[in-house]
């Protein structure tokens, strides 16, 4: 009974200014109220725990180490003068670009092999090849650390039969960088594989048949049919992976912690070392902010491709 009264009261209030179309207006009013409450937790989460910290980190980056004084761009100019910083920039770029290229290549090649295999077996192979992506990276990196162990490395044991001397997998700069990229490629290639496989399946067979009749060889089929048809997926996957790889933390942290001599640090691991371990929070915030430009560029392109894709569908 009380409910009805309240409902009527609300109806009357909403309806009072214009009697015509009051019902519709009421529905609309109710709809937007409901929508507001349904999205409120999401909006709060994004504003309080994502956007606010993001801007807070901009503010933090302008403070001195004790966080008592405003130093403007002091932290940035300090970073520019440090050699380690430029090494981190270089290493992050080398790491992200090389790893993404190899992930994309391996994913593309393996996707073709899996695609060649008939029906039921395909599922089995796909299931097996996706395993690296399923294991939490911190756990699988431990296995790699053990495979790379300086005295008990199982790789070096195997290589010794081929007369290849013990390789210092994590001991010197070149091999440490190589190992980190290898682990990242191992972890990330299955993601590309799955995306490309889905894309390959969506290319209509008639196109290949038509090309075969026209006498196209396999290279022409890939270049003129597969690649153009998969263009969008390749772009989105690559850009997305570029963001994730660039911001990678787990693998470097567990394998080398940035060593030898800080040569394998990425932005994330260096920010962790500076900001949390050496408790220079402003400088750490400053370091991690350098990821923003690259992330922003990639995000803009992804957004463009995703919305383009939405329009096609």
């Amino acid at each position: 009974m009380a409910d009805v009264v309240v409902e009527q009261g609300r109806l009357a209030r909403v309806a009072s200014p214009h009697r015509k179309g009051a019902n519709l207006r009421n529905v609309l009013g109710r709809k937007s109220t409901v929508a507001f409450f349904l999205t409120l937790p999401l909006i709060l989460l994004i504003f309080l725990l994502v956007l606010y910290p993001a801007f807070y980190s901009l503010y933090l980056a302008t403070l001195n180490k004790a966080m008592t004084k405003f130093v403007g761009l002091g932290n940035f100019t300090f970073l520019f003068k440090r050699e380690t910083f430029w090494m981190v920039v270089k290493q992050s770029c080398i790491f992200a670009v090389t790893a993404v290229i190899f992930k994309a290549l391996i994913g593309f090649i393996v996707a073709h092999f899996v695609h060649n295999i008939p029906g039921k077996k395909q599922r089995k192979w796909r299931g097996m090849l996706l395993v690296p992506w399923v294991i939490p990276p911190a756990m699988s990196t431990l296995a790699w650390l053990w495979l790379f162990d300086p005295s008990y490395s199982a790789f070096n044991y195997t290589l010794s039969f081929f007369g290849v001397g013990p390789i210092p997998w994590l001991g010197n700069t070149f091999w440490a960088r190589f190992s980190i990229i290898l682990v990242n490629v191992w972890y990330g290639a299955p993601f590309f594989l799955i995306m490309y496989l889905a894309a390959l399946k969506s290319v209509p067979d008639q196109l290949y048949e038509a090309a075969a009749i026209d006498g196209a060889n396999w290279w022409q089929r890939i270049w003129f049919i597969t690649l153009p048809m998969m263009r969008n997926i390749i772009a989105i996957t690559t850009l997305f992976s570029l963001i994730v790889t660039f911001a990678n933390f787990d693998i470097v942290r567990i394998l080398t912690s940035g060593g030898p001599l800080d040569t394998t640090h990425l932005f994330a691991t260096w920010a962790f070392q500076v900001g949390i371990q050496s408790s220079d929070i402003p400088l750490g915030a400053c370091v991690s902010l350098f990821m923003v430009p690259i992330l922003a560029v990639a995000a803009i392109f992804i957004l463009r491709d995703v919305s383009k894709r939405g329009n096609e569908a």
Partner: peptide, 22 residues
Amino acid sequence: LATGVFLTYLIPDSLLFIPLFK
């Protein structure tokens, strides 16, 4: 808001851990 949600998804943890800690 929908676009914003997608963009938030692209913000990595390694960008936010220091300000969140503070």
